[in-house]
Amino acid sequence: MSALLEIDNVTKTFRTKGFFGKTKEVHALNGVSLSIEKGESIGIVGESGCGKSTLANLIVRLDEPTSGRILLDGTDISHMKEDELRPLRRRIQIVFQDPYSSLSPRMTIGQIVTEPMRVLGGHSEAETEERAKELLHMVGLQPSAMRRYPHEFSGGQRQRISIARALMTEPEILILDEPTSALDVSVQAQVLNILTDLRAKLHLTYLFISHNLAVVKYISDKTVVMRKGAVVETGPSEEILTHPSEAYTRELIEAVPMIGKPFRMPDDIAESV
């Protein structure tokens, strides 16, 4: 059986123009391969800038890889044109890291949440609105939120709105890029429980990016540890996060702040560019 989503030796190099005309190359991904089966939940952890969001953006085709292939049901989508991509967009949805810039300030919450379904068409106004309210309720917001604007909500409330929006089209694959890092623990618990239920009910496939290793341990069957654009270690979450074989993974686990665990002074406090 072939994987639902196959990342095959993907690289991504950004060329940025400096202000004085010199170009700089950033190798954000250096040959990443991953295979995701239908219904699996995969967690990705790793330090800031290791390429997690770059990978997420390539999968939802907000960007194209420099080389390598991204196969959805065996079809390479890595260089598809927008009109070919349209039917695929419903199947893969993403929730972004930043709840501040990802919601349009001029739209009401109702318009924001219902938009993906309107774009698809084929649903009555009443049906769309009903589903939006149901999803808002699931993420812990009042129906009255529908008429309000993003700026009236706190960061965490906005992130819950993004999750409701992403679920509108009943996607098969949900890419969650730090979806709970702006949330307080109780709403995080609600959202993680909801994601667990939805996954079981709708056979959803998750790619869950997070800095919180305990969250990844909870939600993911498999964990991928990344560093500097490459995969360091992959395996069942239980194994990776309780018996890591790589020193870098151990370092990550030790740095997780927990109640009752004393603050551990980092080995090397300095940082260089």
Binding site: A182, H211, A255, P266
Partner: peptide, 17 residues
């Protein structure tokens, strides 16, 4: 929320600072 967007190892350094 100065460390909310950072990974745990970088967070530990910022907290220390």
């Amino acid at each position: 929320e100065p460390t909310t967007a950072l990974d745990v190892t970088v967070q530990a350094k910022i907290l220390y600072l």
